[in-house]
């Protein structure tokens, strides 16, 4: 055999355990803890009843959200959020792929897309309410109407930017249309698609809350607005805290999925940096 091949590059490992623990827990939790302490001291010193201390809010958190409110308000909100996000991802990627692949479709739709993208989604709430009534569907539609855009536009760009040599390779080996889509176009666009999904997630969370504040009798957004109108200040803050936690959970879940899907992408970047 003529082969004289080198070793396979492996990621560098082996930082100190102590340092990993510090980076895993102390760094991310240190500053929030410090802020809590500052906040506690500030609210104790302050006379303003709209800024209760953290302990009061934690207490209200337990009283408000652990129990029937979780089933009545939190779960429906999360359900609509999940539905909205799923629909946005499916519609965004499917439509974005088609628009990215076919130039005539792109030319046909581009002005329309620019127009609809420019409309702030909350103003659609009254319209959708008239069309669909005050229903779950209406809220999911509002979420999708905002969250779909970053996913759609990033997918279009990602699909259009398929590398010419990679395409020629697929041509020369006569790869079929579906194989090309599945093994070339979508993976090549996946870093862009994931960037779009990340943006879409935060938009979806915002619209979930707003859609419930407008017209609703249940849900996280509705509850927070209700507490505020009834001067239940600690409860209101606890709702905001819960929303923040939902956001963090969403980002963490996304992070896990992203690392899995874009393992090759991060791998290349790591190799290039080394």
């Amino acid at each position: 055999m003529t082969a004289q091949t080198g070793r396979i590059a492996v990621r560098p490992r082996g930082r100190g355990v102590g340092r990993r623990v510090a980076e895993g827990f102390l760094y991310p939790l240190g500053l929030p803890f410090l802020l809590l302490v500052v906040w506690g001291m500030a609210s104790t010193a302050s006379e303003n009843r709209f800024f209760p201390g953290p302990l009061t809010i934690f207490e209200a958190f337990g009283d408000t959200w652990v129990g029937p409110a979780f089933v009545d308000d939190v779960l429906p909100s999360l359900y609509r959020l999940a539905l909205g996000i799923t629909a946005s991802i499916v519609i965004g990627i499917a439509a974005g792929t088609l628009i990215g692949l076919f130039q005539w479709l792109r030319e046909l739709l581009e002005p329309l897309l620019e127009f609809f993208r420019a409309i702030p989604p909350p103003v659609l709430i009254p319209v959708v309410m008239l069309l669909l009534g005050i229903t779950d569907t209406m809220k999911v539609v509002v979420i999708v109407s905002g969250a779909v855009w970053p996913i759609l536009l990033n997918t279009i760009d990602g699909v259009r930017a398929t590398d010419s040599v990679m395409s020629e390779t697929a041509d020369s080996f006569r790869i079929t249309w579906w194989e090309r889509l599945w093994f070339l176009v979508l993976p090549a666009a996946s870093p862009r698609i994931m960037a779009g999904v990340r943006q879409g997630l935060s938009v979806a969370l915002i619209l979930m809350v707003i859609s419930e504040m407008f017209a609703s009798s249940a849900g996280l957004g509705y509850r927070i607005a209700y507490f505020q109108r009834n001067y239940l200040i600690a409860e209101m803050w606890s709702g905001i805290l819960l929303l923040g936690l939902v956001g963090v959970l969403l980002a963490a879940t996304f992070g896990v999925v992203e690392r899995r899907v874009l393992r090759w992408y991060h791998g290349i970047r790591e190799v290039n940096r080394a």
Partner: peptide, 28 residues
């Protein structure tokens, strides 16, 4: 015919393994 391109970095698909790359043209 099979083509070997100059730019191997852009001709192999980085999201597939070595085996996956070699296998891809055989799927159909």
């Amino acid at each position: 015919m099979a083509v070997v391109f100059q730019e191997y970095g852009r001709s192999l698909y980085p999201w597939l393994t070595v085996r996956g790359n070699v296998e891809l043209p055989l799927r159909h």
